[in-house]
Computed example of a mutant assay.
Amino acid sequence: MASARAPVPPNIFARDLRKPSIDCTSAAEDGSPVKPVEGPEAPSTAKTSAVEPKVMEIKAEPPEADQGTDWRVPFLDYLIRGELPTDRTKARWLARQAKTYILYDRELYRQSPLGVLQ
């Protein structure tokens, strides 16, 4: 109700809490541990190690596309050359799914119903 700023329905009682609804001292007497909070962004007391972080090697060029495992190949074949798989079920599925893709500057993009390229 508060986030929507909607009116409060009848027979529902709402109130703003100005202080904590529980008593921290009674929780400590029950035996449950209570840590004092120094603020919303209290500094961490965990010690950091002096170990040098490891850096992963990143290849600048994308890997070569494998014709057998690249999912884009059938879509590109259909959109560029109009070729469909020989299996009728796969051909119907591909033709239906290809309607959501578009080629733009030799790149394959998925087009949302509003026309946004993703």
Results as ranks from 00 to 15, higher is better:
9 P>Q: 01
83 E>D: 14
65 A>G: 05
81 R>W: 07
13 F>H: 00
97 Q>K: 15
6 A>T: 02
4 A>G: 09
40 P>S: 07
80 I>N: 12
51 V>H: 09
45 T>D: 11
112 S>A: 07
35 K>D: 11
98 A>D: 09
68 G>D: 15
110 R>N: 02
76 L>S: 01
48 T>F: 07
23 D>W: 03
3 S>C: 09
85 P>I: 05
2 A>F: 05
115 G>T: 03
69 T>G: 04
103 L>W: 04
87 D>G: 04
56 M>H: 07
107 E>I: 02
81 R>Q: 15
46 A>P: 02
32 S>K: 12
82 G>M: 10
45 T>W: 05
60 A>I: 06
15 R>H: 06
117 L>W: 06
40 P>R: 08
61 E>L: 09
60 A>H: 07
74 P>N: 03
39 G>R: 03
28 A>M: 11
101 Y>A: 08
31 G>Q: 04
78 Y>D: 01
111 Q>F: 00
77 D>E: 11
22 I>Q: 08
114 L>G: 09
113 P>S: 03
81 R>H: 14
36 P>E: 14
42 A>L: 01
13 F>G: 00
55 V>I: 14
116 V>M: 04
82 G>D: 10
99 K>E: 15
56 M>P: 08
47 K>R: 14
27 A>H: 06
69 T>V: 13
16 D>L: 11
114 L>W: 03
19 K>N: 12
95 A>C: 03
18 R>E: 14
8 V>M: 01
48 T>A: 13
109 Y>R: 02
14 A>M: 04
15 R>F: 09
25 T>P: 00
51 V>I: 10
13 F>R: 00
72 R>L: 07
78 Y>G: 02
46 A>K: 13
6 A>Y: 02
27 A>S: 03
113 P>W: 05
76 L>T: 08
35 K>S: 10
57 E>Q: 13
25 T>R: 10
33 P>I: 08
98 A>Y: 07
102 I>L: 12
113 P>F: 03
70 D>S: 12
55 V>R: 14
114 L>P: 00
68 G>R: 14
53 P>R: 13
23 D>I: 08
69 T>K: 14
87 D>I: 12
27 A>D: 03
46 A>E: 11
43 P>A: 06
112 S>P: 01
42 A>F: 04
6 A>C: 06
74 P>E: 02
96 R>E: 14
92 R>D: 15
86 T>F: 02
77 D>M: 06
35 K>A: 12
9 P>C: 00
58 I>F: 11
75 F>W: 04
47 K>D: 10
48 T>C: 10
84 L>P: 06
88 R>H: 07
31 G>E: 04
85 P>M: 02
19 K>T: 15
16 D>W: 13
102 I>F: 06
101 Y>F: 15
25 T>Y: 06
105 D>V: 05
82 G>S: 05
42 A>N: 06
36 P>H: 09
75 F>Q: 02
100 T>V: 06
109 Y>Q: 02
74 P>A: 01
22 I>F: 14
9 P>F: 00
43 P>M: 04
79 L>V: 01
25 T>L: 09
32 S>R: 14
5 R>Y: 08
92 R>N: 14
32 S>N: 12
39 G>C: 07
14 A>F: 01
106 R>S: 13
22 I>V: 13
7 P>W: 01
97 Q>D: 11
19 K>R: 15
78 Y>A: 02
67 Q>C: 03
10 P>I: 00
53 P>M: 07
86 T>Q: 15
106 R>A: 15
79 L>F: 04
111 Q>R: 10
